[in-house]
Design a protein around this nucleic acid. Sequence first.
DNA 1: ACCTGAACACCGTTCAAGT
DNA 2: ACCTGAACACCGTTCAAGT
Lengths: 203, 203
Amino acid sequence: MARRSDHTREELRDMSIRAARAIVRAKGTQALTARAVARRIGYTVGTLYQMFDNFDHLVLAVNIKTVSEIRRRMEKATHDLVDPKAKLKAIAHAYTEYALAHPGLWRLAFEHQMPELDNYPSTLTDQTDAIFVWISDLLGQLTAAPRDEIAAAALWSGVHGVCHLSVTSKLGLAGTRAAMQVVDQMVDSVIAGAEQKAAAARA
Amino acid sequence: MARRSDHTREELRDMSIRAARAIVRAKGTQALTARAVARRIGYTVGTLYQMFDNFDHLVLAVNIKTVSEIRRRMEKATHDLVDPKAKLKAIAHAYTEYALAHPGLWRLAFEHQMPELDNYPSTLTDQTDAIFVWISDLLGQLTAAPRDEIAAAALWSGVHGVCHLSVTSKLGLAGTRAAMQVVDQMVDSVIAGAEQKAAAARA
DNA sequence: ACCTGAACACCGTTCAAGT
DNA sequence: ACCTGAACACCGTTCAAGT
């Protein structure tokens, strides 16, 4: 053994992330271990630490892929739409659909915490920030008012909360159907609230 | 050693839960291990398994205490109030204040997942169900309409979402102050939405 | 230079052995 | 009956030793 060089470091990195995602999908977050990933790519644990500083960095790489996948689905869902309100609804739906379809990956992305909470890679924070700005922009188009960051935060938090309670089965209502209804009412209400606030500010 | 009987099984259970909570508060969820709890109460790991079937059951006991503590704070916050809207806001504030003040305990309670998701003890699920019914009732008083479970779910999910993104520092806005503003706007919007829906149903 | 295998200090969990 | 201590199978992480 040793010095196989079957794959470049880049390939091994990609294989590891793929393997990790497959494990989470199949057996949940708990089953994601360094040894399980190594076994799946046909290498030893030691090799894994050539690509990632530590286990948290592997998780981070998985999460970056998850969040970018969520963003891509959101963009695809809004592509044919022009109405800002319809876009916001499509974004919320895409987010919720992903969370319910891939609860393991979604939870890993939004529940994982770095030991040092300072140095999150910008590759990840930039993505969540971009979602926030995007929502904020669409909301601004609707209200024709200066950026309402509070409303944007409420909108995203609200949808996120439905997903989280849904995925952890604490919503009190079961099923994707029910979750979507809650999301719809949530989005409608927050948008209406933001519009009302903007109208009051103009008067 | 052996057969010390310094404490009853009941006392040991209580000591363990207290120790676990202290560890989470001081060093976070990651630091909560069976050995750490045992060390803190001055016993061996083996003894811990006399009170709890397994580690998850210890976590469960901690979470039951956390959720009942949250409920108690909510009740205290609404005690002097009569207006349903004011009560709902007080509930939301109490929930958020607890989450931000004790992020470790709060996350442990709402992110922890049992391997067998079926057998959650009713002592825990009853509590979250009661919160849901409570909110649902207050909302019903406001709208004078039949129970709107969707709106109740939206209200609680919304507040929960703000807390979760806040506690995991993904809100885009920092600080307790900002989180409270988002919660306020959230509660106002969802309540307004529910009232509007009820009015439309009457017409 | 790349990969392995074994080691280290930790986990949760179990259980024979002591009092 | 109660508690310990050591064991078991696992972790994440490191690194000398091989090719």
